[in-house]
Design a protein around this nucleic acid. Structure first.
Lengths: 236, 236
DNA sequence: CGATTGGTTGAGCCCATTCAACGAATGTGG
DNA sequence: CCACATTCGTTGAATGGGCTCAACCAATCG
C-alpha cells in the first residue's frame, strides 16, 4: 500500500495544502500516509470508476483534470463537474455503496486512493481529519447548489462567463495563470455541464471573442477582461 | 438542552427510522439524545436561518415542510430544495462556517437541533453515527446532482413530472398517500426550484390535468397516472 | 369593503435549439 | 507517404419552447 522507503509521501507532496493533509499535524499526515495508495497514474480517457461500480475508495486528484458524468436510466447524460488537483472523486457513492457517476481523465494525470472504511477509521483517531472531511463534503454540496443556481436562473452567456471565471479562479489558486486557460474538455462537455448545446457554447465563445473579452483559439482561451465577464453576470 | 424527565426523546420519536437515530443501538440513541435540542416548534413563514448567518447547529425536520433558497449577490434567488421530516437542514454551512442559504417553514412544524461541534464529538464516540452522517451528506450530494441533471437536460414538462413523482415517492415513504399531494409551496417556489417561471408551472399543471394525468385544484393535486408521468420523462 | 397575494390563461416575442454544411486537426491503414 | 475516416469546432437559417407582458379571477386579510 505505502512505499516503505518513504517516511511520508503526503508530507512531501507539492499539493498537500490543497489536499487531505491540509490542516493536519505532521504526525497525523504520517498516519494518513500509511493508509493511502499514492499517485496511481491515469492516462487520458481512463475511467477511474463507472456508474454502478461498487464503492470502496475515494480518490483525490494529484495531477491532471477529470470530469464526472451522471448517466440517467433513459440514455440522458450530464457532466456534473470537472475536478482539479486536490479535489475528491467519488463522494456521491458513500450514500448507497455504489457510484452514481463515472469519472474520466481529460488528460494524463494521477490520483491518490484511500479505502473509505480506512478513512472513516482514521477519522475516529484524528478529529482534525474528520472535520476537514466534513468540510469537503459540505463544500461539494455548496458547489452543486451553485451549479443549480446557474442552471436554474442564468442565461447562456452568463453561464459561460461564470464557468470561465470559475476555471480561472481555480487555476490561479493552483498557481497557474488566471487568464491563460486550456480547456481540456470538448465543447460538448462544457455544454452538458452548463445545460447548453455545443453549438451554443461555440457561438458564445465567438461572441465573447468579438466583444474583446476573450482570445479564443480552439481550446486555448485567454481572458482579456474578467471585469467584462463579471459584468455579464451582474447585468442579468 | 434535554428534557431531564424523559429518558429518551429520540427513542420514542415516531420518525426515528427516518432520522439521525436510524441504525443506532438503543444506548447510542440515549447518548445522542442528551446533545439534542428537541422539537423546537416553528410557524409558517419562520426562518430557521438566513444566508450569511453564523453556523452553529444542524437541524432535522421533525414535522412540517421547509424550503431552502440561495441568494446570489445580484438579487438572483433560487430554491434549492424542499425538506420533509427526517431531512437535514444546514449541511451546506459546514464548509465555511456560515449559511449559504436560508431555510423557511412552508407550514407549521418543528425541528430538532444539534450543535455541530457536539455532533462531531459524538461521531468520535459512535462510529455508527459517524457513518450514517457521512451517508446523509453524500445523499445530499446525489440529490443535488440529480437536480443538476433535471435542470441541465430536461424540458419543462419532464421537470414537473419528475418533481411530482419525487414528492409522491417521499410522501409515500413517510406513510402519507403517494397520489394525494398538497403542494405547500407556491407556483413561484416550484418554478424557482425547477428553473421555470410560475406561469409555465401553472400551464403545465393545467396541461397534465387536461391529459388526465392529474386532478389539480389549486394546491391539491391528485396523481391519476404515475405511469403517464413516468412516460413523459422517458419519452424525452 | 378594498388591498394583497396567489393562480390561470392568452398573445407575441426571443433565446437557444435543431438541422445542416463546412473546415481543421488527428489518426489509421494501405 | 497519401487517402480516408473520425472527431472536434464554427457558422448559418429556420424553428419552437418557454418567457414576457398583460388581463383577469379567487381567496384571504386587515
Amino acid at each position: 500500500m505505502n512505499s516503505p522507503d518513504l517516511k511520508s509521501v503526503c508530507g512531501c507532496c507539492s499539493i498537500k495544502e490543497l489536499c487531505i493533509p491540509a490542516g493536519l499535524a505532521e504526525e497525523e499526515v504520517l498516519l494518513l500516509d500509511q493508509h493511502m495508495n499514492h499517485r496511481r497514474t491515469v492516462r487520458k480517457g481512463d475511467a477511474l470508476f463507472r456508474t454502478g461500480d461498487a464503492f470502496r475508495s475515494l480518490y483525490v486528484v494529484s495531477a491532471g483534470l477529470f470530469k464526472t458524468s451522471m448517466l440517467h436510466e433513459d440514455g440522458r447524460t450530464q457532466v456534473t463537474g470537472f475536478q482539479m488537483t486536490g479535489e475528491y472523486l467519488g463522494l456521491d457513492a458513500i450514500s448507497s455503496g455504489k457510484h452514481h457517476c463515472e469519472a474520466v481523465a481529460l488528460e494524463g494525470g494521477s490520483v491518490c486512493e484511500i479505502a473509505f472504511d480506512q478513512l472513516e477509521s482514521l477519522g475516529q483517531l484524528l478529529p482534525n481529519l474528520q472535520h476537514s472531511f466534513h468540510k469537503s463534503l459540505s463544500r461539494e454540496i455548496v458547489r452543486d447548489q451553485g451549479v443549480m443556481l446557474l442552471l436554474g436562473s442564468m442565461r447562456a452567456e452568463e453561464r459561460l462567463a461564470a464557468f470561465l471565471l470559475n476555471l480561472a479562479k481555480r487555476s490561479a489558486h493552483r498557481r497557474q495563470s488566471d487568464s491563460e486557460l486550456i480547456l481540456r474538455m470538448t465543447r460538448e462537455d462544457i455544454g452538458s455541464y452548463l445545460g447548453l448545446k455545443l453549438e451554443t457554447v461555440s457561438r458564445i465563445l465567438s461572441r465573447f471573442h468579438d466583444q474583446g473579452l476573450l482570445e479564443v483559439q480552439g481550446r486555448h482561451v485567454r481572458i482579456l477582461s474578467s471585469e467584462g465577464l463579471e459584468r455579464i453576470i451582474r447585468d442579468h
